[in-house]
Write a protein that binds this DNA or RNA. Structure first.
Length: 753
RNA sequence: GGGUUCAUAGCUCAGUUGGUAGAGCGUUCGCAUCACACGCGAAAGGCCCCGGGUUCGAAUCCUGGUGAACCCACCA
């Protein structure tokens, strides 16, 4: 760490001590609220976070200087799946596991681990100069958050929007949980496409089975035990002769007797969703393990058979293959098919395989009992407010992108088989089945929705809620909803009001909600942004935020996302340690163009970092020059006849103030940075300061004036250098943070004191 | 398959209502000038992807190509 670091830390603690970051709900000032997207508790903050936080902080500081009562609210997200995966790795090293510890002990470990990670996140925030109101800092699993999430669940439940039911879900055998479509990635892989002989069984016309057979193409021969039909396209002439005969089909004979309930006599069905051009045009229908098949099966009222369990192993349905892993079973079954002559053909086949976004293991479509929210009507309301232009999106085309997605929305699967999260607030009498799972179909009449146990003999649902269920509530829960909200609607909170860090203040909710500004990476526009809009609209009939800013993604030079597995990540601390916080922030602003991705490498970032580090030095030197004479001349004469240079620099300053202000209002920070940089270096320093040397004392008042305004203009972007210089330069003010943002009307040179 | 975005100096990119191109880094030349060598002064470098259209005039608007990237859906 360099010297600069220490002084930055000193400045930061000075600001904190002076309470400059706190919002003041009771002040008469107009409010401006910014909500920090809660980072996932999985480790260090990355470059994208650093950019997000720098943008938020610049706007917060700008608004504060403009005289607003600014609320910049920090918090972190528990990030269920990701957190558990990170913790699991850590526990493995200690030779521990979820199974060994059990739920209670594991949760204690988890909270310890949370604190550990949190410390690093929190220190990075302070390090970057984030002027957040730490007194209001929140965590999704805090008591207040629990209460808010419960209220959300209860509201949906009472409105009849929540149901539990069997559903085909993407199941991650490694993370042992259902994951959402949006959490699934597709990897291109080369696999084999197998053509298997299904013989025509009972031939109703002749009464006996003939030698006829049809070829069925599949990439997953191991699910053959869960077949319940074979489907062809209705117009496919190749199979016309079989329809009229009500033929049934048998799978390869050696597979019997398996314990499959449907072991032979598969019906031949016709369905338009079958692509006659693919493979042989005949598709085996396996509703338990394929999304398309699930739908086809449902529409044809076919049974569902599970042949793959949640551990990714075959069930007893598979007879002698039971217990084998999917991949092992596939090899073994193909071998036997080949030996017995049922494998008609196999070809290499490139296709997309669904993998878990986080752990990259192949996900299994599986039937599971899960909780859902019917979001259809909520989505419609969200579409309405978006279409009405109530929310300003940057870039603007995101409003249509979100509307498109909301228009085709499916019910939201909100249950996850994890421990880290908000446990589903549903209780069952201990006599009934309590776990969610494939075989469970507990009666719905005897369950109770409650945050606390309804009493002895009740057992809580084992699952937790999807992380996004609480993240989607973030704009509300951070401001004390539902207690605060009810208060303002005439209800006093009961004795069981929120505790912990959550502040309840009667003015908070109405003053800061809806949020003035929210920022996000585009990749979570559906997971998070769309849901916040739906949820706010449903629960409080208001939009969650007025301006929604989507920054671009920082990528590597090949355009790839930064990821741990690729090892192409660049930590913000790399830049900070090399060039300082202010320069790092400036570098990041040059990439903060709405919706536009940036390609970076260490070398490229270093170029800019170095440049802005030099810029910081430049300003220090300008200040040194200006201050030199200031000390000598306590009093300065105002020159009556304005020199042409003075007039020029003041005009240039006016233009710069106007442009920087406009660009900040439009959230075009890269342009604002450009303007201020160009003005300070190439106009003020290169021209005015140079020329002032010939008329030094005459120019002094203007030098001081321009420097003072420049520092204020630059402060939102480079908070530390500007404060450092300001402290040396001004004696009467406490901090640059309590200065006034310059206006760009007609400004006269202030009479120097 | 559906959608979005991008194509500007050697590199990474700006360019806000259409009016003969800008930054940073790099390159070349000169300078230890008393705020600053993390600097100062100067210079080279671009049919603004290609074709067509609108216009007095287009990097900027429309259309068609070509190339690149991303998002969504997903084929057994």
């Amino acid at each position: 760490m360099t010297k600069d670091f220490l002084s930055e830390a000193k400045i930061y603690s000075f600001w904190e001590k002076e309470n400059f970051f706190s919002a003041s709900p009771h002040s008469g000032k107009k409010s401006f609220s910014l909500l920090i997207p809660p980072p996932n508790l999985t480790g260090e903050l990355h470059l994208g976070h650093a950019m997000q936080h720098s943008i938020l902080d610049a706007i917060a500081r700008f608004k504060r200087l403009q005289g607003f009562d600014v609320l910049l609210l920090p918090g972190v997200d528990h990030a269920g799946i990701q957190f558990e995966a990170t913790l699991e790795k850590k526990l493995q090293k200690e030779n521990l596991s979820k199974e060994k510890l059990g739920r209670e002990k594991w949760l204690a470990k988890a909270w310890e681990f949370k604190e550990e990670i949190y410390k690093s996140v929190s220190s990075t925030w302070r390090f970057m100069g984030l002027s957040a109101d730490w007194s209001r800092e929140v965590f999704t699993l805090d008591p207040g958050g629990q209460k808010a999430v419960y209220q959300q669940f209860k509201t949906y439940y009472d409105a009849g929007l929540i149901y539990k039911g069997p559903y085909i879900v993407q199941w991650c055998p490694k993370d042992q949980t259902a994951i959402e479509d949006v959490e699934v990635e597709y990897e291109e892989r080369i696999d084999k496409l197998y053509f298997i002989k299904y013989s025509v069984g009972q031939h109703p016309a002749s009464g006996k089975s003939g030698k006829e057979f049809i070829k069925v193409a599949t990439t997953r021969p191991e699910t053959i035990f869960a077949d319940v039909a074979v489907a062809v396209h209705p117009d496919d002439d190749r199979y016309k002769n079989l329809w009229g005969l009500h033929a049934t089909l048998d799978r390869p004979g050696f597979l019997e007797p398996s314990r499959s309930p449907v072991s032979s006599g598969l019906p031949l069905i016709r369905d338009e969703r079958v692509d006659p051009k693919f493979g042989s045009g005949a598709l085996k229908i396996t509703p338990g393990h394929d999304f398309l098949d699930y739908e086809v099966g449902r529409d044809h009222k076919l049974p569902i058979i599970n042949v793959v369990n949640k551990q990714g192993r075959l069930t007893e349905v598979a007879g002698k293959y039971a217990g084998m892993k999917v991949s092992e079973a596939r090899t073994a079954i193909v071998k036997e098919l080949k030996e017995k002559g049922y494998l008609l053909d196999e070809v290499e086949y490139i296709h997309n395989v669904a993998v878990c976004e986080r752990c990259k293991s192949v996900v299994e479509p599986i039937i599971s009992e899960e909780w859902f929210v019917k979001v259809g009507s909520m989505a419609k309301d969200a579409i309405k407010v978006i279409k009405a232009g109530k929310i300003k999106f940057l870039p603007s085309n995101y409003s249509r992108i979100l509307v498109d997605w909301l228009s085709n929305i499916h019910d939201w699967c909100i249950s996850r088989s994890l421990w880290w999260g908000h446990r589903i607030p549903v209780w069952y009498p201990s006599t009934s089945l309590r776990t969610s799972g494939p075989s469970t179909s507990s009666g719905s009449n005897d369950r109770v929705v409650s945050l606390e146990s309804p009493g002895k003999g009740w057992i809580q649902d084992e699952q937790v809620l999807d992380t996004w269920f609480s993240s989607g509530l973030w704009p509300l829960s951070t401001l004390g909803w539902p207690e605060e909200w009810r208060m303002e609607n005439g209800h006093r909170p009961g004795a069981s009001g929120p505790q912990g860090k959550w502040k309840i203040d009667e003015n908070t909710f109405s003053k800061y909600f809806p949020w003035d500004f929210e920022i996000s990476a585009p990749e979570i526009k559906y997971l998070w942004i769309a849901r916040m809009i739906m949820i706010s609209q449903f629960l409080v009939r208001q939009i969650p935020f007025k301006t929604m800013f989507f920054h671009g993604m920082l990528r590597d030079l090949q355009g790839r996302k930064f990821s741990k597995s690729l090892g192409n990540g660049i930590e913000p601390t790399y830049l900070i340690e090399k060039w300082g916080v202010d320069a790092t922030r400036m570098t990041l602003y040059t990439y903060s163009i709405p919706g536009r991705d940036g390609r970076v490498s260490r070398e490229i970032l270093d170029e800019r970092g170095k440049n802005f580090r030099n810029f910081a030095t430049k300003i220090r030197n300008i200040a040194r020059y200006v201050i030199e004479l200031k000390v000598e001349n306590g009093k300065l004469k105002v020159n009556r006849n304005e020199h042409k240079d003075d007039k020029w620099i003041k005009d240039e300053l006016q233009i710069t103030i106007e442009r920087v202000t406009t660009h900040l209002n439009d959230i075009e920070l890269h342009l604002a940075v450009d303007e201020i940089y160009d003005f300070i270096w190439h106009k003020f320093a290169d021209v005015y300061v140079e020329r002032s040397k010939e008329r030094r004392s005459d120019a002094q008042p203007v030098l001081e004036y321009v420097l003072r305004k420049s520092l204020i203009l630059l402060h939102p972007f480079m908070p530390f250098v500007t404060e450092e210089i300001y402290q040396k330069f001004e004696e009467r003010e406490r901090s640059i943070m309590v200065e006034k943002w310059p206006s760009f009307g007609k400004v006269k040179v202030k009479k120097p004191v």
